[in-house]
Every structure is written in C-alpha cells, then in structure tokens.
C-alpha cells in the first residue's frame, strides 16, 4: 500500500536535491564566469576553486535575523518566496535529461512547463505587495508587467517547435530533431526564445526589478535571510530551466556522438547558460518603457512570422 507513496517521496526528494544542487552550482558558475569576464578571479577562497562559495552564502543567509517589515502582510510575505520556488520544482518534473531519464514524461510536457512558470508571476506580486512599501509594490508590478509581456513571444516562439515536431511531449520533440536541430530552420524562433527567456527570468539586460540604479526598489527589497535565499535560488532554477528548454526545443536535446546523452544534454544546457551569463556581463540595462515596447512591437511580430514560416514549410 505504501509502495507508490514511497516511490513518490523518493522521486520528489531526488528531484528537490537536484534542483537545489543545480541552483547552488549555478551561483558559483555565474560568479566565477562573471569574474573572469571582468578581469578578476571570482570566488576562490571557499573550497577548491571557490566551489563551496554557494554553501557559504546559503549558510550565511540561513543564520541571518528574520526581519519582517512592520506593517507587512505576514502570511503573504512568508508565502511569496515559496510561491516563487515551487513552480520551478513542478517544471523540473517533466524535464528529460536523456532518453527515458525523466520523472514524468507528460504528453503535454512543454505546455506543462509554460503553464507552471506563469504561476511564478504571482510570487513577485505577492512579494511586492506584502512588503508594505510603495516602491516595492511598484517594483513588483513592474516585474510582473515585464514577465507577462514577454510570456507571449516566449510561448509563440515555442509553438513553431511544437508544429515542427507534431507533439508537446519533450521526448518526441527531441526525437524530431534527429536529422536537424530546430535552431537551424527556426533560427528566428530560437533568437526570440532566447531573448524572451532572458526577460522571463529577470536577467540582465532585463533585470530592472533588481537594478540598483533604478529609483524604484525591487520587489525583494524587504527580504533577507532564508526568504531572500529562496528568491535567489528560484531565479537560478529558472535560468537552468530556460536553458534546458532551449536545449530540448532547439538544440537537439541529448543527441550527440560518443558521449552519453546526459552529458550532451548538460553540455548544451550549460552552453546556453554561458551565453545568458555573458549577456549579463556585457550589456547595459534596458529601460522599462523600451523593454515593453521591444517585447510587444518587435519580439511578438517576429515570433508570429516564425510560426507562419514554419506552417508554410510544413504545408509545402
């Protein structure tokens, strides 16, 4: 009787460990990479090559005093970090790391990931609202507006992939790229996806919600300690997720010669992550009005063009 529950619990724990571990690793990866791009070594004291730096950071955040703003909305304030993190978990459930290496190969896999990611917007709004600060609220709203605006081109750019593969199931999508990665014929969709995914994860150059040079404080201003750690880790989980989808949908997933499929999957995913971090090191921040304008007036039409082209070629 307890068998399916035990398996469920075990799977959930393994997944949780993987997600947290990946997020923590990404913290190190980003700081090291940014450092090197900025002519400095990055973390190099804690652990070999600074690898234990994320551990030190998380430990530090855990032992910090838990500060609650005076008139904050307590239940929401406490709930928001969890709301940010749980969708990431849920999305990882359907991610295949190799043929058959997946927790639950839903036949609506891609749609499930997209659906679950949109719930994270609620977390930002809750964080901004619960902080009881005019500026945090505006910051939260702005972040939400940004994420909603970029969801549309994100989803549309992936529809081209779904059309070409004829399925929402991630395993099928990878299989459909056996001869040619979708990034080649759908290069437009690929570019739109990369830009939209960067904006969805609030990463530079779209990191207005976190920009210190912005007057309006970010939605997580009032958060410190473990709660902040949750937002932090959630952001990195989404980066990994976005890169993983790029790999699966456009770069042929786990396909590749000689090496085992999992390795190829991770190599490609980390290549995309490298690119995302590179963007952060290089580009200035875009302004809110320019960002929204770009999303609606440039990315959206381009993604529609992409769908049209895919449809056209399927027809021919």
């Amino acid at each position: 009787m307890g068998q399916p529950y035990l398996r469920l619990a075990a799977a959930a724990l393994i997944l949780a460990a993987f997600v947290l571990g990946t997020a923590a690793f990404l913290v190190w990866f980003e700081r090291k990479l940014l450092g090197r791009m900025q002519v400095r070594p990055g973390p190099n004291r804690v652990g070999p090559g600074g690898l234990l730096q994320p551990v030190a950071d998380i430990l530090k955040l855990t032992v910090k005093e838990d500060i609650l703003p005076e008139h904050a909305d307590r239940p929401l304030f406490r709930l928001a970090p969890l709301m940010a993190f749980v969708p990431a978990f849920a999305a990882f459930v359907v991610l295949p790391f190799g043929p058959g290496l997946v927790s639950a190969d839903l036949n609506i896999g891609l749609l499930w990931i997209l659906a679950v990611s949109t719930v994270s917007v609620l977390a930002l709004i809750a964080a901004g609202w619960a902080s009881n600060s005019k500026y945090a609220l505006l910051g939260g709203m702005r972040a939400a507006a940004q994420m909603i605006s970029y969801e549309v081109p994100l989803v549309l750019s992936l529809i081209g992939v779904v059309l070409a593969a004829g399925s929402l199931r991630l395993g099928r999508i990878v299989a459909a790229q056996a001869h040619l990665w979708f990034a080649v014929p759908q290069v437009l969709g690929f570019i739109v996806y990369l830009i939209a995914a960067t904006a969805e994860s609030n990463r530079s150059p779209f990191d207005l919600p976190e920009g210190e040079s912005e007057l309006v404080a970010g939605f997580h201003t009032e958060y410190s300690g473990v709660r902040f750690a949750f937002f932090f880790l959630a952001e990195y989980s989404y980066v990994f997720l976005a890169a993983a989808i790029a790999t699966l949908a456009f770069l042929g997933g786990w396909s590749g010669p000689f090496l085992p499929p999992v390795v190829w999957f991770l190599v490609k995913t980390y290549a995309v992550i490298f690119f995302i971090i590179w963007l952060r090191a290089t580009l200035p921040r875009i302004r809110i009005d320019q960002l929204l304008s770009f999303g609606w007036k440039v990315l959206l039409p381009l993604s529609l063009v992409n769908i049209f082209l895919v449809g056209l070629f399927r027809f021919i």
Partner: peptide, 16 residues
C-alpha cells in the same frame, strides 16, 4: 556611468 546604466563590466576594465 556605464554602471549606472546597468553594464557592470566596463567599470572593471577602466579601473585596470
């Protein structure tokens, strides 16, 4: 100035 605009890397290059 570039740091104010959100680009963090040139700051380190100019300081070099």
């Amino acid at each position: 100035f570039l740091l104010d605009l959100g680009a963090m890397s040139p700051f380190l290059y100019t300081f070099r």
